[in-house]
Design a protein around this nucleic acid. Structure first.
Length: 469
DNA sequence: ATCGGAACAG
DNA sequence: CTGTTCCGAT
């Protein structure tokens, strides 16, 4: 039969900035950008093929699909509005024509034990992601505990009302990064940048940068309509990890000194990352800037966008204190199999005092899963807004002048010297990472597959060529 | 609607 | 290992 597997080779075009369902309503959802690498099949150890959760994330990330699946409810929670359609898309992606929601949901259920996902009881077709889990799964090697992101997050969580310290501050720490991956064409599209074609950068190689820290998109109110969106004016030499670079001062809770532990640079990867710009930048809206409210979406998005995930707001609760998240995650991991810990257990905080202990020790009181299914340890972090409120922070250097031109693999890693030191871990196959989904709207009124504007297409092609070489 | 066991595929 | 396919039980 004919399946749409090809879609795997296509690149989604438009960046999908999460849009709060056009809504002004309720707690507006803030989108969080899920790190690119999270969407890459390669990032899923053990599986060469796209995984269901990746796929879900992809759909969630694109507003075109908001009619069938969308973030809703608590942070990380999403609802499958049209189970059959989602199943159909999944089936198309996997070339399983007989896929249906029953089967898809079975696969989803397997995630419960893995703690990647869990069901939101009481709400139909509603599930919730445990992002930290996802992160861990993808990048277990990272010592996220030491990441400023996480640290910030912890604090962030601690106080609900301190949004300040959080997202924005952190965000300001990183320069914008063009997107990545698969998409490769990200910036281009936007283009806004009249000229520089060289804005291609592949962050795939720096998964870590993305850090797993999904970032929130600013609520509409905060975001300008993309007023300014300089592709990125941060000097590549900027090292976000340098103390000086951070201006988390606004973050009262962050203990000085704890931000950049030496362990922060455990490996080459990390060091190289330090020169990378901020990945979240790709969140910048582009074409669809103007229109966002339609759920049915129609923007022309089709191709090359990297993946960006948008989540609904809520930093729920990271229950970890500032302890080491990594440890807790590990603990969780173990716990995972040990106890299927039914949700609903009390104990909100994951042992603040736990600190880094061996996974086996953690047992002590770590119990999370505050209530129901919210054991989600959120890893969100910064506000990845598209607007650069904090640009000024970085604005200083040679701005545009030094735009990077990193291309990918093999080609030239011009601007990022350390590229060579990057671990081969990620994205071995550029092409592969290029395209995640392109569910074609086989049936469905929704504009599942908007046409790609000519120029974009062109760009895309170019990009591909580049990658190829 | 959900769940999870079991067999099976790649 | 990650589903896919069936399916009986809630």
């Amino acid at each position: 039969m004919d399946c749409n597997c090809v879609s795997d080779l296509l690149i989604p075009p438009v960046p999908a900035l999460w849009t709060p369902g056009q809504s002004h309503h309720q707690a507006r959802a803030r989108g969080i950008a899920f790190p690119d690498w999270a969407y890459k099949p390669e990032s899923s150890p053990g599986s060469r093929q796209i995984q269901l959760w990746h796929f879900i994330l992809e759909l969630l990330q694109k507003e075109e699909y908001n009619g069938i699946i969308a973030w809703q409810g608590e942070y990380g929670e999403f609802v499958i509005k049209d189970p059959d359609e989602v199943a159909r898309l999944w089936g198309a992606r996997k070339c399983k024509p007989h896929m249906n929601y029953d089967k898809l949901s079975r696969a989803l259920r397997y995630y419960y034990n893995k703690r990647i996902l869990h069901k939101t009881k009481g709400k139909r077709f509603t599930y919730k992601f445990n992002f930290s889990k996802v992160v861990l799964v993808n990048y277990p090697i990272l010592d996220m505990a030491n990441s400023p992101f996480f640290l910030a997050q912890n604090h962030f969580n601690g106080s609900t009302s301190t949004p300040d310290c959080s997202p924005e501050a952190i965000q300001s720490l990183f320069p914008r990064l063009p997107d990545s991956g698969r998409g490769t064409s990200l910036f281009d599209r936007t283009t806004a940048a009249p000229g520089p074609e060289g804005d291609k950068l592949r962050l795939d190689s720096f998964p870590f940068l993305s850090t797993g820290a999904p970032c929130y998109t600013k609520p509409p109110s905060l975001l300008g309509p993309y007023a300014r969106n300089p592709p990125f004016d941060y000097p590549w030499g900027f090292n976000p990890y340098l103390p000086g670079a951070f201006s988390l001062n606004n973050c009262p809770k962050l203990p000085p000194g704890s931000l950049y532990p030496s362990q922060f640079y455990p490996n080459p990867l990390q060091s190289s990352l330090s020169q990378l710009p901020h990945p979240f930048s790709s969140l910048l809206p582009t074409a669809e800037a103007g229109e966002r409210g339609t759920t049915g979406g129609t923007n022309g998005t089709a191709g090359g966008q990297p993946i960006r995930l948008c989540l609904p707001p809520y930093p729920g609760s990271l229950s970890l204190g500032r302890m080491d998240i990594g440890a807790s995650l590990l603990a969780e991991r173990e716990r995972e199999r040990a106890e299927a810990n039914p949700p609903g257990t009390g104990g909100v905080s994951l042992g603040l005092g736990a600190g880094l202990q061996s996974p086996s020790e953690r047992r002590g009181g770590l119990k999370q899963d505050p209530e129901s299914d919210s054991d989600l340890e959120i890893t969100d972090l910064s506000d990845c807004s598209s607007d650069n409120d904090n640009d000024h922070v970085f604005r200083k250097g040679p701005s545009l002048a030094s735009r990077s031109q990193i291309v990918l693999d093999g080609k030239k890693g011009s601007v990022l010297p350390p590229v060579s030191s990057l671990p081969p871990t990620v994205s071995p196959h550029p092409l592969k990472s290029l395209k995640p989904v392109s569910p074609r709207p086989v049936s469905r009124p929704l504009s599942l597959s908007p046409p790609l504007p000519p120029h974009e297409k062109h760009r895309e092609t170019e990009t591909l060529k580049m990658i190829h070489s």
